[in-house]
């Protein structure tokens, strides 16, 4: 176990593309960090630099008390779980788990014990002698995690490990990963583009955009006080409404801001409310509904409890203190 410290890390690919720039994160020992951001924002690149699969163009990466910039992946004391599992197809599950240990010269008895332990934790005992081909997606995912666990590394690196699974399995596996990490207390970096996965798993979130960090914080911090319009729009579902303040002239305390952010769930129907909404569409989600409409020409979404028919025009009020104010040009938070 170890802390991982990224200091002004950057990556410029051979062709001159800058994929990551100026990323500094202090990851504490045992912490579960989730890197989240839209596709192509450099999450995988950053993770692969920590793993040693990609060279580090700028800055330093420390794992524990070592700078690992020039250390081979195998010697960094990390284990990685890949999106497509990357199990060795010609080896049985047992051999897959044992391979890394064998290469490190771990004694036979030790390997057997660790494989048995990992198999028990992940409930893959019955499949130990099968080939990966004969396993379901979820079982393969467990084996891939088993391969990481048996190594007892200083850190786990996950690159979208659940995105090949169906929605239901994803939720179960998400819980299992969280539970596993809580028990093993191994420092983990987890990459995903799914903000829900990010919110539920992370001790701290790192929101990336265009290869740079937009915000670092606990999921609730990030949710409650997004540092920029990008984060505000990315974290939370349905996404936060971001509208120019002139579109909501009667909302208290927003006059001097360029952009006002209001989460759909912070708006409620109130006949004396300051916002008038012309309803355009209603989406039923079961327990609640999303109402989309326009106010002074700007799109606005509101969550409402399911129930009676929605009239064409609504008066809305915003929960006090629930507005987020951002600078019109930079998009940075200003309150």
């Amino acid at each position: 176990m170890a802390s991982i410290i990224l200091d002004k890390v950057g990556k410029i690919y051979a062709g001159g593309t800058r994929a990551v720039g100026d990323v500094s994160i202090d990851i504490r020992d045992g912490e579960f960090i989730v890197l989240v951001g839209p596709s192509g924002c450099g999450k995988s690149t950053l993770l692969r630099m920590v793993a040693g699969l990609e060279s580090i163009s700028e800055g330093t990466v420390r794992i524990g008390d070592r700078v690992v910039n020039d250390i081979e992946p195998a010697d960094r004391d990390i284990a990685m779980v890949f999106q497509n599992y990357a199990l060795y197809p010609h080896m049985s599950v047992r051999q897959n788990l044992a391979y890394g240990l064998k290469n490190r010269g771990t004694p036979r008895a030790d390997i057997d014990r660790r494989v048995a332990d990992a198999a028990a934790i992940l409930q893959i005992g019955p499949y130990l002698d099968r080939k990966p081909r004969a396993l379901s997606g979820g079982q393969r995912q467990r084996v891939a995690m088993g391969r990481a666990i048996v190594r007892e590394p200083a850190a786990f690196l996950f690159d979208e490990p659940l995105s090949n699974l169906d929605a239901k399995l994803r939720v179960t596996m998400r819980l299992e990963i969280k539970d596993l990490q809580r028990r093993l207390r191994t420092t983990s970096i987890y990459v995903t583009h799914d903000q829900l996965e990010a919110m539920t798993l992370a001790d701290r979130l790192v929101v990336l955009n265009g290869g740079r960090i937009e915000q670092i914080g606990t999921p609730l911090d990030v949710y409650r006080r997004p540092a920029s319009t990008f984060v505000a729009g990315f974290i939370g579902s349905p996404a936060m409404n971001l509208i120019p303040s002139r579109a909501v002239p009667n909302l208290p305390g927003t006059a001097h801001a360029g952009i006002v952010g209001i989460r759909p769930e912070d708006l409620a129907v109130d006949p004396s409310g300051p916002i008038a909404l012309d309803v355009i569409a209603v989406e039923e989600l079961g327990a609640q509904r999303l109402v989309h409409g326009r106010t002074n020409g700007e799109m606005l979404t509101v969550t409402m409890p399911a129930g009676d028919a929605v009239p064409d025009r609504l008066q809305l009020a915003c929960r006090p203190g629930a507005t987020h104010l951002f600078h019109a040009e930079t998009g940075q938070r200003i309150d």
Binding site: A51, L53, P73, A74, A86, Y88, Y99, G100, N103
Partner: peptide, 9 residues
């Protein structure tokens, strides 16, 4: 290939 590299092969 990368998994094998991390596995110390």
């Amino acid at each position: 290939t990368e998994a094998a590299r991390i596995d110390g092969a």
